[in-house]
Structures are given as C-alpha cells and as structure tokens.
Amino acid sequence: MRTSNHLIGLMNFLTFLASIPILGGGIWLSSRANSTDCIKFLQWPIIVIGVAIMVVSLAGFAGACYRNTFLMYLYLWAMFFIIAALIGFVIFAYAVTDKGSGRPVMNRAYMEYYLQDYSGWLEERVTTQSYWSKIGSCVRDSHVCGKTRRFVNGAPETADMFYRRHLSPIESGCCKPPTACNYVYMNETLWSTDGGLPAADQDCVRWSNDQQLLCYNCNSCKAGVLGSLKKSWRKVSVINIVVLIFLVIMYVVACAAFRHNKRMDNDESYGETRMEKEHPSRIQF
C-alpha cells in the first residue's frame, strides 16, 4: 500500500514537472503574439491547460500523501479531461496551420509568401479587415522591418548580400515588395519602383517606401503572418505531443496504482472482517 502511494505521488510530481514545458510554450506564444506573430488569442488555451495540469497534479500528490480517496478520484477524472483537451488542441493546432508555406525564389535565399497558398478558419480570421487592421498595426509597432537593416563596415549591405539572407516570413512578406515586382533594391526597406511591373501583382501597387506603410497592407504580409504563426505553433506542438505521450503513460501508471490501492484496501477490510468472525472474543468494547 505504502509503495503504491509513493508511486502515485512520484507520478504526480513528474506530471507537475511536465506541465512546465506546456506553460512555457504558452508563455512563449504570448510573447510572440505581443512582438512578432501578433495573434493574441491562440496562446491562452495552452496556458490554461498548463496551469490546470499543475493544479491537478498537486491535488493528486496531496491525495497520495494523505491517502485521500476523494482527491485521487478528482485527480484521475480531471487529468482524463485535461489529456482529452490537450489531444483536441494539438489536433486543432495542426488543422488550422496545415496549409501554406513559403515558395522558393530563383537567386534568393529567402522565401516568398502568397495568401492564396493558405486557407481555412485561421486564414479567414487573419484576413478579416477589422482584425487585420489590428494585426498590421501590431506588426508595424513591433519595428520588425526596422530591425532588418544591416550595415557592413558602416555602409548598408549590398543587394547581393540581402538576397542571400534567410528572412523570416514576416520580414519577407511585410518589409519588402514581392520579387515579381522587379523593383530595384536601395536598402532593406527602400526600393526604387522605376522600371517595375506594378500590374504583375496587386501587392506591387500596395507597396510604399513610406516606412510607416511599407507592405503592411499587402496580401504577402498577411501570408507572412500566417507563415510565422505556423512555424511558432509547430514548434510548440512538438513539445505538446512529447508531453502528451508522457502524460498518458503517467496517467495509465497512476490508474494501475490506484486500482492496486483499492484492491489492497478491500483485502485488508475483508481480512479484518474475517478475523472478527473467527475470533469474536478479541473484539474490544
């Protein structure tokens, strides 16, 4: 009995530790939402699940230490629903970020991002004008485009150096015009439109050398945000899947140990009842 309680307590302690990466992933997504990705609602389910796992594992740990059957039942049922919620959330995260990725460009190290490559619930939400006005302002206020400026020996980097850079999806989609426009590179966020092909892409018309506008209203910028969000969520989903597998294993072991405790309690109760029947004179009044 004591060994089973110790095992359950250890499982709950390990479960508590497993909640830390989930909570950390949610906090990381929150920091990205405030600085880069600018999607400020998807991280909260992860944070809630991480906190819930922490609280429930503490309840299970207390139940194991004090042999409190109610707390153990609460732990097992609550953990069951938390695992189910985490499974559903991982599936949802992969479903909404399933489509779309950057396209390679000849003689460029960075990718180009096109809105038509994305579809589904997340794409519709991001491209809604009322919602995009907030996201676009967030991207602009993050100064991500200003951070793309680089200098070599005090001089701005050349076009060839810029073309060899691996830009992030947002840097590629929001901070420069699409390559198809054939605009001439001046610096990372300043391009000459002389000799360009504005009709090739509507984003060519939307591009502006005004540092407050750039390509924040371009479809490529919306695609860049979706591409950045996909990368962030896939990283967190890998951690969630690993933790989920661990939680399932811990849950199965905890269930087995709890059933063993109940069986031992029943055996002890049966043994005491049998002794009372066989030796009634030993009953103390």
Score class of each variant (00 low, 15 high):
residue 36 T to E: 15
residue 186 M to S: 14
residue 76 L to H: 06
residue 65 C to G: 03
residue 76 L to M: 13
residue 236 V to R: 08
residue 74 L to Q: 01
residue 134 K to A: 09
residue 173 G to V: 01
residue 109 A to S: 15
residue 191 W to L: 03
residue 212 Q to Y: 11
residue 35 S to F: 01
residue 183 Y to N: 02
residue 130 S to C: 00
residue 198 P to L: 02
residue 267 D to P: 04
residue 233 W to D: 01
residue 237 S to R: 02
residue 50 G to D: 07
residue 222 K to H: 04
residue 72 M to N: 15
residue 3 T to M: 11
residue 102 G to I: 08
residue 26 G to P: 12
residue 200 A to C: 03
residue 256 A to L: 11
residue 31 S to Q: 14
residue 6 H to Q: 11
residue 42 L to I: 12
residue 264 M to N: 11
residue 17 L to A: 13
residue 116 Q to P: 01
residue 25 G to E: 12
residue 252 V to D: 04
residue 94 Y to G: 00
residue 29 L to I: 06
residue 264 M to A: 14
residue 2 R to W: 13
residue 60 G to M: 04
residue 203 D to N: 12
residue 126 V to M: 11
residue 66 Y to G: 00
residue 192 S to C: 05
residue 36 T to N: 12
residue 211 Q to G: 07
residue 162 F to I: 01
residue 258 F to M: 07
residue 237 S to N: 11
residue 141 D to C: 00
residue 52 A to D: 10
residue 247 L to W: 07
residue 8 I to H: 07
residue 185 Y to P: 07
residue 251 Y to L: 03
residue 122 L to D: 06
residue 77 W to I: 08
residue 176 K to C: 02
residue 208 S to E: 06
residue 148 T to F: 01
residue 20 I to Y: 02
residue 147 K to V: 04
residue 18 A to L: 11
residue 203 D to Q: 05
residue 124 E to W: 13
residue 20 I to G: 05
residue 267 D to N: 10
residue 280 P to A: 04
residue 235 K to D: 13
residue 238 V to K: 10
residue 21 P to T: 07
